[in-house]
Design a protein around this nucleic acid. Structure first.
Lengths: 157, 157
DNA sequence: CGAGATAGATACAAGGCATAATCATTATAG
DNA sequence: CTATAATGATTATGCCTTGTATCTATCTCG
């Protein structure tokens, strides 16, 4: 076999030049969280978007799909499949408002409440594992810093 | 116009139930950074992936495409279009290695070096604006915490 | 009533990202 | 030395997510 080392130049490839950038580190951390979160929700038959939708509906019963889309920062058309799925699975009810028959009032069913409770617990556990190297104070400060960064933008992706 | 308040139920939709989750805040912060970063690189004719590639090539001259793919956490096939573009634009050279004529040695051209320098400066400015609400110490601690979270994962998305 | 706006839905296009298969080259085994 | 396996680069392909344009039904306002 041939000597793998070039003996003259860099034998290992580094990303040190990208490490000082906040965006790079944020993206990599997101990759880790995302992969773990998907694995956490998959046994419950949920995706990130359906879990988020359940959470916001549970917090704001009776809201419309347009309001939900705004809260989740997704376009209205992309929410249709989500509410269809949640409705078909019997997790959410869509009732027409008497005052405005264009809009739906979204509410969790009893099954939706139960699944949301289970999913919330699962996600808490998932986050606790990722949070593990951080102290309580660090976690709070991390979220606070992320929100400060978020506030610098217009809010849309 | 009609009174927007329902006077009986929640007039505003909140995402307070999602705010305690690290993943939610991270994703929102990423959206802001991503949108601003795209806008920053667009005038230079760069995308995130091409900027990252230029940076890593500049830091590791002579590396192969497989090494670059690993460093950037992208699949090899998806890197072909990137190196094609950089090569066509005269920013990067692809030279066959005499020792192994399968692999390319990627290097920046003089034009590539110049564009990378300009882009790096632009991205630094972009990040400085987003960083603005944070102190120097907070920025270091933020990146350190993100790297701790990243280290909890397997590294793949 | 008629113009304009809004909620939801549909259709469609574009980008990101992963897999499988292919080709050329190199390494390894008999 | 020849056959086989392994690797770098490439192509083709498909999935998933997300955005835009458009349509219908309904509501508000003049």
């Amino acid at each position: 076999m041939v000597d793998r080392e070039e003996t003259t130049t860099a034998p290992k490839v580094t990303d040190a030049a990208l490490r000082p950038f906040l965006g790079f580190n944020l993206r990599r951390a997101w990759n880790v969280i995302h992969a773990d979160l998907v694995a956490t929700l998959e046994p419950l038959g949920l995706r990130m978007i359906t879990f988020s939708a359940l959470t916001v509906i549970g917090e704001n019963p009776g809201l419309s799909q347009a309001q939900l889309a705004t809260a989740l920062s997704v376009e209205r058309p992309n929410l249709v499949a989500v509410t269809d799925e949640l409705s078909t699975r019997g997790l959410v009810t869509r009732e027409r408002l008497a005052s405005d028959r264009r809009t739906y009032a979204l509410k969790l069913t009893a099954a939706g409440e139960r699944l949301l409770a289970r999913a919330t617990e699962a996600v808490r556990g998932h986050e606790a594992a990722l949070y593990e190297p951080l102290s309580d104070g660090e976690r709070q400060s991390l979220i606070a810093m992320l929100q400060k960064i978020e506030s610098k933008g217009t809010g849309r992706s």
